[in-house]
Design a protein around this nucleic acid. Structure first.
Lengths: 202, 202
DNA sequence: GGGCTACCATGACGGACGTCATGAAGGAGG
DNA sequence: CCTCCTTCATGACGTCCGTCATGGTAGCCC
């Protein structure tokens, strides 16, 4: 579990962006947070700040994607609604235990740089795509018809991201619970039971 | 429709925050964009940048709230689903005509300052609240039971904000259309037809 | 051992930022 | 006319930013 200084910097960048946004996250802050040597910046990230943030965004997207697969595997008697509830619960837990200081790094990066840096915008787009894919795949596996699964994955991501923003603004997890409550029947109602693929042997 | 320099500065701040985020929006940029005298900054906003951004956020919240009432009045044979579709359509139109450079100022402010400035965070919270209220009121007027209307308003705001972020990241309005398509039946299904209040005389 | 590469250290530079000090117009009221 | 107050103008200050230049260390390969 030891991480190279380079990895630590990418990881620290992601965490700092979650809290302060891209603009307010300095490279000096990143090396300090990562306990990495400052001289390594120009060595590992010759592309400068854009490259560092882009890698952080990409890492965050991969992390989110992995987490979907992981949480889906842990649900017993899974349904689409339960998947969404579990995804929201992860944020709920983080907010209640760690506080509301950190949000989603992808949202922060879009808000700060979508109009400025094409490369960063593209990195975020791919990160969202990579996150959406396992969500859609899981929905399909749970019996949602393929065409619908992609749409519902977009809805799930949108509602979750929006609820995170609302929760942070209010310093209250209620929006997360609300969207789960309202969306659950819709998601569970989208399964075509004849198509359902069970992961266990019948 | 002439605006005082002070108003112009607040308005320009809101617009610049939408594009560049709070951190990357400088006060000099604001006065330049507003074509306002730089010396007026310390006179009208002795609280500094925080005060300026806070007023911009508050203005944006009021603007969004007014727009809900306005768009709701223009829908013929309105339903909850149509309200949401109309709200999303406003963003759709802006993205297609003006491009994806500008997002929602409330989201940008939360992402940049939720962990840093308590006053700004609070301003955004109230702005969201002031936006949510007319949405819930309109839903109730369209026949949604009161308790449900508040929840659905949260869902509407969350899904819309999230879809805006996704649309900007992908430079594609598809997410907006997707959430509308998926959410419309849910919203229209929430009306209790016995409670519906018609605006015209029966 | 010599040379090459990967990695780290440190200081400087030019620019932009938010803020403040100081002062000048310009109209209102006495 | 003089005074007060609102409004605007301008320059400076200190700080922080991203980037770069330069040089040092450590280890591997020939």
């Amino acid at each position: 579990m030891v991480r190279t200084p380079r990895e630590r910097m990418v990881l620290s960048a992601a965490q700092l962006v979650r809290i302060h946004g891209v603009g307010a996250t300095g490279m000096r802050d990143v090396v300090a947070h990562a306990e990495a040597p400052r001289g390594s910046l120009q060595h590992y990230f010759p592309g400068g700040k854009d490259q560092l943030i882009a890698e952080a965004v990409t890492w965050a997207g991969d992390y989110a994607a992995r987490r979907v697969a992981r949480v889906a595997a842990k649900i017993e008697d899974p349904t689409p609604g339960k998947l969404f509830a579990a995804m929201a619960a992860q944020w709920r837990d983080e907010f209640t235990t760690t506080g509301f200081d950190a949000g989603c790094p992808l949202v922060a990066t879009v808000a700060d740089t979508a109009a400025t840096s094409e490369s960063l915008r593209e990195a975020v787009g791919k990160a969202f795509e990579g996150w959406q894919r396992p969500v859609a795949a899981t929905l399909e596996q749970l019996g949602v018809p393929q065409a619908r699964a992609a749409s519902l994955a977009v809805l799930v991501l949108s509602a979750l991201e929006g609820a995170i923003v609302l929760a942070r603004a209010h310093r209250d997890i209620a929006p997360l619970d609300t969207v789960v409550t309202e969306l659950r029947p819709l998601l569970d109602g989208a399964v075509d039971h004849r198509r359902r693929r069970t992961s266990t042997v019948d």
